[in-house]
């Protein structure tokens, strides 16, 4: 499929990268295999400037108002929010579990940090996800190289700062390879305090 190239318009502030919004929703009874995941994920739009981002974002439902088992993803253009994508296959993600009611605020803050290039880890950031679940909501940030400890530590420390997380917040990291093996996004993570 050919898509129109998205570029900043005159007077707009360009972003370092273009980003694409995705949405996915799963019926809990259905198994989360790769095929059904790919079928359930939908590309919503791509932005190239700060102004285009706000225009798009302001019309989206806030994640805290979503119901059921659904996710918003914001990824660099060209990277699919899937473990198997070329940019993700050696990567992993930091996970922050949020009690109900916090997702919308944290989602906005993590997006602004990513769009503003606050993480200072070169090309390493792939995208961010907010996952709405029944008991809790989950925020994740995906990076390219799971075994690069300098990068993953810097992402973790930046997250603490930009999200203003209390010092005792539990941070969990999971490689996409491990997610593929146990076919689960958020189980069996490595916990860091």
């Amino acid at each position: 499929i050919r898509r129109k190239m998205v570029t900043p318009a005159a007077g707009e502030h360009p972003l370092q990268y273009n980003y694409t919004f995705w949405y996915s929703r799963r019926t809990p009874s259905r198994p989360a295999n790769t095929q059904s995941y790919e079928q359930n994920i939908r590309q919503m739009g791509t932005v190239a400037s700060v102004e285009q981002f706000w225009k798009f974002y302001s019309h989206l439902v806030r994640p805290g108002d979503l119901t059921g088992h659904s996710d918003f993803h914001l990824f660099k253009e060209g990277i699919k929010p899937m473990w198997e994508d070329e940019a993700n296959k050696n990567g992993g993600k930091w996970i922050i579990r949020l009690r109900k009611g916090l997702a919308s605020r944290f989602w906005e803050n993590i997006i602004l940090a990513m769009l503003g290039e606050q993480f200072m880890v070169g090309e390493e950031i792939c995208g961010v996800v907010v996952s709405i679940r029944f008991q809790e909501d989950i925020l994740s940030i995906w990076n390219k190289t799971a075994n690069d400890q300098v990068t993953t530590s810097r992402i973790r420390d930046t997250l603490r700062r930009v999200l203003n997380l209390p010092p005792n917040t539990i941070m969990e990291y999971k490689t996409h390879n491990d997610s593929l093996k146990d076919n689960s996004s958020f189980r069996n993570t490595k916990i860091t305090l």
Binding site: Q16, W54, K55, N109, V162
Partner: peptide
């Protein structure tokens, strides 16, 4: 190359620009 860095306050200020509506 140079990196385009924006802080949170700048990004939030852009939200009220007519171009962002």
């Amino acid at each position: 190359g140079t990196r385009i860095i924006y802080d949170r306050k700048f990004l939030l200020d852009c939200r009220s620009s007519p171009l962002a509506r």
